[in-house]
Design a protein around this nucleic acid. Structure first.
Lengths: 220, 220
DNA sequence: TGCATTTCTTAATCTACATCATGTTTTCCA
DNA sequence: TGGAAAACATGATGTAGATTAAGAAATGCA
């Protein structure tokens, strides 16, 4: 009798474990799917990887990183949206990047050098994310060298996008840059406050507002 | 007698081989030294690596890559200087990057996607360089996975520099951007035609010329 | 060495976008 | 749910840098 009870208990625990696994796994699905586009992970490797991740919740307007701090994590967004921005000597903010679901964000300079950074990272809405510490990332490089490949590819893609942005900033008008933004990030447009988009494409909110009115006028 | 002749011949060939190795090795020194900062290669791996490289000579004003072509190589500069630039719809050139000795250059977008690119790469002076084909690079990733790490780090550094440039373009005046350029690339300043620097920092040659005169005037 | 080409300079005028100011609409949260 | 804060719109004016033009200096190459 005693033994049977133990068995039942053990079974219940197992079931509970599976349920937990099943439930919480959804939190890693988006990231694992993204990774699968570039490298193949065994189930065991997935477990090792997931063990390096820590889920966090960030309230709207809350900061994940402040300028002057050392960036110790990469952040992968599951829900919501983050922004990375700097503040210039006149107190004006400049958006370097948005991180909607499926995107990574960090202060790359600070993360690499482990010196104080210049980036602020803030939630534009309530956000669920996973963080991967620098230590965790280096552990991954050691234990599963395929991750070198994954992050190389990720970084390459990011570099290409940033180079294109430099070229666009040098050779296009604000209006053209905005059109490109709309095409490239259609989901962000209705989501984001105008002033954030204005800051990203590199104009003042006032000019952006006028420009949009102008564009509507033209189309008629 | 016949045998001895053969031995001498073999010895001569060996000596010749070493001399060749010694002479030509200087051509790879800069690159191997750079790599050694990030990963350790065995002598055997060095040989494998060097076998993937092909030396080229580029005359001043000659193009290594034209927009519209598919970029099939990364180029590492030993001597001289290359520039990567785009031409906008008004025919104005915009310099995305310079490649002085010790630097890599390529149309990253095209190299990754193997689609026609938008970058022109041209020699600003007679240049000696090494090219690593995309195929060669992928062979390296397979045979010596450490190269995943090397190129990841290279790409990360490049990404950081490009992000900083985006921020600078959004938050600084042309004069400030020029000051930063002077500090960051002191060797390039006396080397490069002014109009190339103007194009890199994102102003016209006329404005750049006036700006510099202005800066001299101020300092007195 | 000299001449053609490219690069640099300087000046007048123009424009895309910034700044300042003020009112209106939307959003948030107590 | 209502009132404060944030976001957006619009007008008047200012400015960094572009454009056009034309001459002077430097450079490359036959």
């Amino acid at each position: 009798m005693n033994k049977k009870r133990l068995e039942i208990k053990a079974l219940a625990f197992l079931v509970y474990g599976y349920v937990m696994l099943y439930q919480t796994s959804s939190m890693f699905d988006l990231l694992l799917t993204n990774i699968a586009k570039y490298i193949h992970l065994t189930e065991e490797e997935k477990v090792t990887f997931v063990a390096c991740l820590k889920p966090i919740q960030i309230k709207r307007k809350q900061f994940v990183l402040n300028e002057g701090e050392i960036c110790r994590n990469s952040v992968f967004v599951n829900n919501g949206c983050l922004r990375g921005f700097t503040v210039d000597k006149n107190g004006i903010e400049h958006v370097l990047s948005f991180a909607p679901p499926g995107w990574w964000i960090a202060d790359m300079y600070s993360l690499i050098s482990q010196k104080p950074g210049i980036l602020n990272i803030e939630a534009l809405e309530d956000t669920e994310a996973l963080i991967l510490s620098k230590a965790g990332q280096e552990k991954l490089y050691h234990e599963i060298p395929k991750f070198e490949r994954f992050f190389r590819i990720l970084t390459e893609n990011s570099l290409v996008a940033n180079q294109q942005r430099i070229i666009d900033n040098m050779s296009l008008t604000a209006e053209e840059r905005y059109s490109i933004f709309c095409k490239r990030y259609p989901t962000l447009i209705d989501h984001l406050p105008q002033k954030q988009i204005a800051s990203y494409i590199g104009v003042t909110p006032e000019f952006f507002s006028r420009m949009r009115a102008e564009m509507v006028r033209k189309k008629k």
